[in-house]
Design a protein around this nucleic acid. Sequence first.
DNA 1: AGGTTAGTAATTTTT
DNA 2: TTACTAACCT
Length: 728
Amino acid sequence: MTEYLARLNPAQREAVETVDGPLLVLAGAGTGKTRVLTTRFAHILLTGRAAPGQVLAVTFTNKAAREMRERVSAILGRPAEGLWLGTFHALCARMLRRHADLVGLKPNFGILDTDDQLRLLKQVMEAARLDAKRWAPPALMAVIQRWKDRGLAPDRVTPAEDTDFANGRARELYAAYQERLRALNSADFGDLLLHMTEILRGRPDVLAQYHRAFRYILVDEYQDTNLVQYLWLRLLAQGHHNICCVGDDDQSIYSWRGAEVENILRFEKDFPESRIVRLEANYRSTRPILAAASALIAHNEGRLGKTLRAGRNDADGEKVRVVSLWDSDEEARMVGERVETWRRDGDSLAEMAILVRAGFQTRAFEERLITLGVPYRVVGGLRFYERAEIRDAIAYMRVLNQPADDLAFERIVNVPRRGVGEVALRTMHQTAREHGVPLTEAAARLVAEGGVKGRVKESLAALLHGFARWREMLPRDGHVVTLATMLDESGYTDMWKQDKSPEAPGRLENLKELVRALADFETLAGFLDHVALVMENEESAEGDRVSLMTLHGAKGLEFDTVFLPGWEEGVFPNQRAMDESGLKGLEEERRLAYVGLTRARRRAVVSYAANRRIYANWQSSIPSRFVEELPDDQVERDGSAAMARETRLGITSVFNGQFPLVARRQKVVEVWEQPARPPREDAIPVGTRVFHQKFGYGTVTATDDDRLDIAFDKAGDKRVLDRFVERA
DNA sequence: AGGTTAGTAATTTTT
DNA sequence: TTACTAACCT
């Protein structure tokens, strides 16, 4: 047997060797999903079933695409070239450039970022005379994106599917938005998939062309596909049916972005002869971690069903720790202390991660780690190409590349400040509309014909001359020199040099980095495409640092030690997720918890605090139901944690019957079916003087069962649970 | 046009 | 708390 096959376990080998026909690989966390995918890819090539260019391999992230490319090359023993391997968006962009005319675009269409989309949408809404205060543009953007996620072009949206946004005018606005995009020769992210799917649906000749081109299709993270991606895949797989999807329904955490786990089930229906392989041997985590994660996720309904087994011989290990703390500060201290202790014991910081539900939660830990002098890095956050200075610089390049790029021009026309404000911009827009020309041309006319005067005229003239000059430079001096010159001569770099804010030097550094990055590209257009599609954070993974990130950001990563703080009702599971999506939302939160736990190889520390500062004021909180769903025999609860857990069981009123989400389950049913708690004998009436450990003395101003509103003498107005105060 | 101040809202975000 | 926006003043 060939060497690369010998390294696989039987299930993995089956997934690799079942080459023909539809195959669904259900791969639990840490079961070697990437290995299967890459080995399968290489296997197809090495057995001569297809040439490199005849396999279509789709991922969600650029990172995953890069990794797959590297690993396929490693197995082949040579660089893998000519592959159709990339993200859904990158592959669609590549295809769409060939067929742009079929959807009314030119092959050099631009790809808009979120800022541009929003700006354009605002303009569309303005033109439709909608009150931006009553109807928020981002809300409409979300509606349109959902439609695009579902493969619905404006003419496919039925009136019944219109939302109540703008009194049912969302469809009309969507159509207008698409019209504007076309006029600007631009596509947004959703369009890449939508247009391509429309083309494949409507043009059998084009579809046939791709059927001939691709003999095999490989799909990563299948549980995260949305409907339009599914349709696109299904169209491409028609005929040969050689499609292999790898995914894990238990790790589906992007439904709020349009992902539909149901695609897994649909797939089986559409390809009745499909086979399913389950990868269940986990090579990552210790037994207790696996057992805890499995027990937790077992609370979800409608799973396809997988059981993680420890695949390692050395899988025994410490129990999962659950620590309860008095407040969020103490939680941060606890995490900091353990980081220090384990570091002293020889653990590497790079092997520790703090995974939070929401980005803002990282701050408390950052502060603590700074105090302790422990190096850390925050993963995620603003990406390189999302920084204002980078977007500005790119907007300059876009105008250079395509003078008709109104959105880019609008962005930089007054950056740096040139005295071209709202009024001047409106004049330009009006002229542009009247003559049916782009903004740059409108500006040129206004300058020439005296439509603008004084400073505005001077500035616009200077800027337009600048662009003419830089455009001349481009073929002569190359794009790198041109960009640097353009940024200098336009006054853009000066703007940051004169800026006294602490971020300014960093921004100048970023601009230099951008110029350096540009050098890697042959053409300006190629670079702009890269920027739009490969918005990556060039994070220097260098140095021994603790990683801080959201649970979403941690998907696909693993660490020896994982801290999971903030397991409190409302925080995690997140209140809004439950409000908006009910049981589905809760189950997705639980999957997120599952993802978090399964990131850990050796140690997991779950924690929650009884009091948390949210914005300015303190709020008491209740331990997350997930804490309780962890199995006792795999978990070591800190003394006070055990106590607080009982507290949680006793407190049913906090849910107020709003979320009978857990009532289906035996164990908690008891809790839910308890008769309304009898009025407590020790109820604290309004007006009582009380003492609170943290806030000191105060007077009760209102009560709601066990929750008290208290006006504290020093700490101000707070709402706390009655068990945290005593009569003064 | 641009800077200042007061008011308001606040997950997750692969492309 | 911060960060962003809208109204307001210079």
